[in-house]
């Protein structure tokens, strides 16, 4: 009893499990500033960013494009079905475009991205930590944050908007395929309805803004959990799972917050 109270009084403040989420946010925020402080815009750093964009972006391409195509098909299928009841099937393009650009595109692409690229970033950095590669860099007087963490974060911020655009494009093509080729909607009506109702400035660009934020959040979550992983196989596994869970939750919460802000 006495010992217990002794330990409790010795424990540093804010170290309990209840304050853990807030602590993580604070740590991640500080980590972000440590990363950004190392932005140099030097040719070597850009070369590494491009290299990581290749790994982060290209590897997610297949899942993003497949996802986009089928989301477009399903969206068109569902809305077409409902719209037939109202005799307003020509609005299918509008509905697909409106729901896609502001919400579905950015969110689904970010979730897929977190699952594919986020986890591989976490696992890669975590493994580099477990195999002492980060220590080796540090000992060679090469800053591991500048060299390993920063290029991956920047690559995520660059890649996700591009991937989201490709996701959107495949989804539009999917719904076009369904509505125009299979259901026989006039293609001019499909496009002109979209053009007259989907706003470039109120829907398309805000969606694109969102994906930049999502890219930063997914990238930061991935590098944060990788860099702070316990340097064991188990630790890396836990960190990878954490990355998916945390970035998915953050994307969904932030999506709501950003939508509310932009409306």
């Amino acid at each position: 009893m006495n010992q217990n109270s002794d330990q409790a009084s010795k424990a540093p403040p804010f170290s309990g499990p209840r304050s853990a989420p807030i602590r993580h946010i604070g740590e991640a925020g500080i980590f972000l500033f440590r990363i950004l402080a190392r932005l140099r815009f030097s040719p070597r750093q850009w070369a590494e960013v491009m290299r990581q964009t290749y790994f982060v972006g290209i590897r997610s391409l297949v899942i993003i494009m497949t996802g986009g195509l089928f989301v477009g098909l399903v969206l068109a299928l569902q809305t077409y079905d409902v719209l037939t009841d109202f005799g307003a099937t020509e609005a299918v393009g509008t509905i697909v475009g409106k729901s896609l650009y502001r919400e579905l595109g950015p969110v689904l692409a970010a979730l897929l991205f977190a699952g594919r690229a986020g986890t591989s970033i976490t696992a890669e950095i975590g493994l580099m930590k477990a195999t002492e590669q980060l220590d080796a860099l540090d000992l060679m007087a090469i800053d591991p944050i500048e060299r390993i963490v920063l290029p991956r974060l920047v690559a995520a911020v660059i890649s996700l908007p591009i991937l989201t655009l490709l996701f959107d494009m495949l989804a539009i093509l999917g719904s076009y395929l369904f509505a125009v080729h299979w259901m026989g909607l006039e293609q001019g009506i499909y496009w002109s309805n979209m053009q007259s109702h989907v706003s470039l400035y109120k829907e398309f660009f805000p969606g694109l803004m969102k994906t930049v934020v999502f890219g930063l959040v997914c990238g930061l979550t991935a590098v944060y959990y990788g860099y702070h992983a316990r340097p064991t196989g188990e630790g890396v596994g836990i960190a990878t799972t954490q990355t998916v869970i945390i970035s998915s939750i953050l994307v969904l919460i932030l999506d709501f917050a950003l939508s509310a802000l932009m409306l």
Partner: peptide, 23 residues
């Protein structure tokens, strides 16, 4: 990765002009 970025740009242009009121 250059190709990847060009693809993204192409998608941006296509979507903006084909499927929004900028078209």
């Amino acid at each position: 990765s250059g190709l990847f970025m060009a693809l993204g740009l192409a998608a941006l242009v296509f979507l903006a002009f084909q499927s929004t009121d900028a078209g």
